[in-house]
Amino acid sequence: MREFFERISKIDRRIIYLLVFIGVTIPLLTRKGFEFKPLQEVETAYNFIESLPEGSNVLVSIDYDAASMPELQPLLEVMLRHLFRRNLKVIMLGHWPLGLPLGQIALEKIAKEMGRKYGEDYVFLGYRPGIAAVILNIGKEIRGVFDVDYRGIYLDSLPIMRNVHNYSDIALLIGFEAGSVGDFWVQFAQARFNQKIILTSTAVVTPDLYPYYQAKQIVGLIGGLRGAADYEILVKKKGFAYAGMTAQTIIHIIIVALILIGNIGYLAMRRVR
């Protein structure tokens, strides 16, 4: 009996890795999903976008890179699809230079799929260094930091940008966050210029953003793969995030079961000692 408890308190990590591997791959391959109700903070974000008048400008900030791609890229695509379906104008920029191409790729893909035109329905501004300074300067005049788009075309020659000067011309800002840039958006764009913000983030970052949502400094919070899956349900287009939630559920159950088994072994061994 002692041997058994000792063994379950020290399971070989290779067995754990194997369980995780099986728990992730099978649900992703079978693509079977569970039914669930979207979280309230995600529904609030969705409703806010639904309430925007057609033709409103939405600033999208890409503040993540490939490491957070599985969580944020499906959400970016589904949100862009929603924005275009609602006939909203998308202005994209970013503070993570290595992640910006992911935004550009998604924007080009969804715009093509929805038949939107560059310069009229969407624009890609690119990257400028200095997060706080960029955010503050947009509050005064966006041309102060981005006088041209990523291809070097002057903003005034793009129809979408002709009447966009600062936050008062932007109905909503959506930040895709894998780090602390979301804090900058809230502290500068919201606190100083009263910009309406929806933050979407990786699951690790989400707890840091809850204070802003509870204090109503942001109008919606979409956290992790669960948030992305919730959004896919709301826009009625289930995709990668929805399928990924089955894998996440199984992994969470495996981890909780392992923790339970580990504690049984640990407590039994402690009693023996």
Binding site: I16, Y17, V20, I251, I254, I255, L258, I259, G262
Partner: peptide
């Protein structure tokens, strides 16, 4: 994901 599962089992 693999490290977290293994670390959670050992640390919690």
């Amino acid at each position: 994901a693999f490290f977290i599962a293994s670390a959670a089992y050992r640390a919690f």
